Amino acid sequence: MKVLLATEKPFAPQAVKEIKGIIETAGYTFAVIEKYTHKSELIKALEDVEALIIRSDKIDKEVIDHAPQLKVIVRAGAGYDNVDLNAATQRDICVMNTPGQNANAVAELVLGLIIFMQRNQFDGTSGHELKRKRLGLYAFGNVAKMVAKIARGFEMSVQTYSPSLTHDDLRKEGEYGVLSVYSVEELFETSDILSLHMPLLKETRECVNYALLSRLPEEALLVNTARKEVIKEADLIRIMDERPGFRFITDIQPDNHALFKEKFGNRYFSTPKKSGAQTFEANINAGLAAAKQIVDFFHTGTTRFRVN
């Protein structure tokens, strides 16, 4: 049994060492390909592999078709839109993610981004405090729950809307101190700061459009640490054109990054690359979870976090 760790963006050396230990202790062969620059390198490495651990690496139909022995793919992280689920399902390949392992890292980033913008990117001018500001969380998964807990420490008012959870479900989340609103429209209308936390699905692609954005207050702050595709960029540019106080911050550079930067100055900021899970701790947590899920898959048939 051969397990491949394939990462364009490598794990921390300590994480790789511990992943290797889990795999080899289970009696499997462990291999690594890091910082590869072309798909052909990944395809060649997959020729005799039965299990694959990835991060944001793109696993499309071509890659899957060139991995004849592959049985399981684990995405070390929450999002999995970089894997062609249909192609994997056609081959009866199990695809899993590792939800929750990066949640605290992303949540801390969200609050850091919010503070950065509330203080005008620390340009020396007077900004705003977080206390008593209304924070809206669009979706309420692992990351949003951690954001809520941290935000409550700043004495923010936290509310959420999640199409996948009922109000009874949300009422059970009392430890997070959140208010459940009855529609996404209400969420936008009553949030000073709106943070996006939905996965990229057919239903969520460009779901944040002009109709919703126009419901936010005039000087609202939109925060995106989810996926860039959940926002309709043309509509966001339009609303920022219309409202000189509207601000946007993200850790995923939009397609129109240069235009945002040129037109909106310090009302806009994007990190150079996706940064939510870029902590030493999250790096290790997600990698070890992926390794353990592969061992459990082959030992006991466990597919708890299967996404296809």
Results as ranks from 00 to 15, higher is better:
Glu108Phe: 07
Ile239His: 05
Asn142His: 14
Lys44Asn: 09
Lys131Ala: 15
Asp92Thr: 14
Leu109Gly: 10
Leu200Arg: 06
Asn209Glu: 04
Thr225Leu: 06
Lys39Arg: 07
Tyr36Met: 04
Asp255Met: 02
Glu173Ala: 14
Ser157Phe: 01
Val223Glu: 05
Glu175Ala: 14
Gln253Glu: 12
Lys263Arg: 15
Gln159Phe: 00
Gln121Tyr: 00
Ile23Gly: 09
Lys58Ser: 09
Asn266Val: 02
Lys17Phe: 02
Ser275Val: 05
Val147Leu: 07
Pro99Ala: 14
Arg119His: 09
Gly174Glu: 10
Ile252Ser: 02
Val110Tyr: 05
Glu47Phe: 00
Leu137Asn: 07
Pro217Gln: 06
Lys20Ser: 15
Leu109Pro: 10
Ala107Asp: 11
Phe116Val: 04
Arg205Met: 03
Pro217Gly: 03
Leu200Gln: 05
Gln101Leu: 10
Arg238Leu: 06
Glu206Tyr: 03
Leu213Asn: 04
Arg152Trp: 00
Thr204Lys: 07
Thr25Cys: 00
Ser191Phe: 01
Gly21Met: 03
Arg247Met: 10
Phe122Leu: 14
Asn104Trp: 04
Ser180Glu: 03
Asn97Glu: 12
Lys232Asn: 12
Thr302Val: 11
Thr303Met: 08
Lys145Thr: 10
Asn256Lys: 11
Gly127Gln: 03
Asp168Pro: 00
Ser270Met: 07
Ala258Asn: 10
Ala151Trp: 02
Arg171Ser: 15
Leu137Tyr: 01
Ala15Ser: 15
Ile53Met: 14
Ile93Arg: 14
Val147Lys: 08
Leu70Gln: 09
Arg55Cys: 07
Arg304His: 03
Pro199Glu: 08
Asp168Phe: 00
Ile93Asp: 13
Ser180Asp: 11
His128Cys: 05
Val32Phe: 00
Ile93Ala: 11
Ala234Leu: 03
Glu242Asn: 09
Arg215Tyr: 01
Asp255Glu: 15
Thr279Glu: 09
Ile249Lys: 08
Ser157Trp: 00
Ser126Arg: 11
Lys263Ser: 11
Ala103Arg: 12
Thr225Pro: 04
Val16Gly: 13
Val184Leu: 09
Met96Val: 13
Val230Pro: 03
Phe246Ser: 03
Ala31Thr: 09
Met156His: 08
Ser164Asn: 14
Ser162Gly: 07
Leu187Lys: 05
His66Asp: 12
Gly287Pro: 02
Leu170Asn: 13
Gly100Lys: 06
Lys20Phe: 00
Phe246His: 04
Ile150Asp: 08
Ala286Ser: 15
Asp241His: 11
Leu222Gly: 03
Leu200Asp: 12
Thr37Gln: 15
Leu196Ala: 04
Asp84Cys: 07
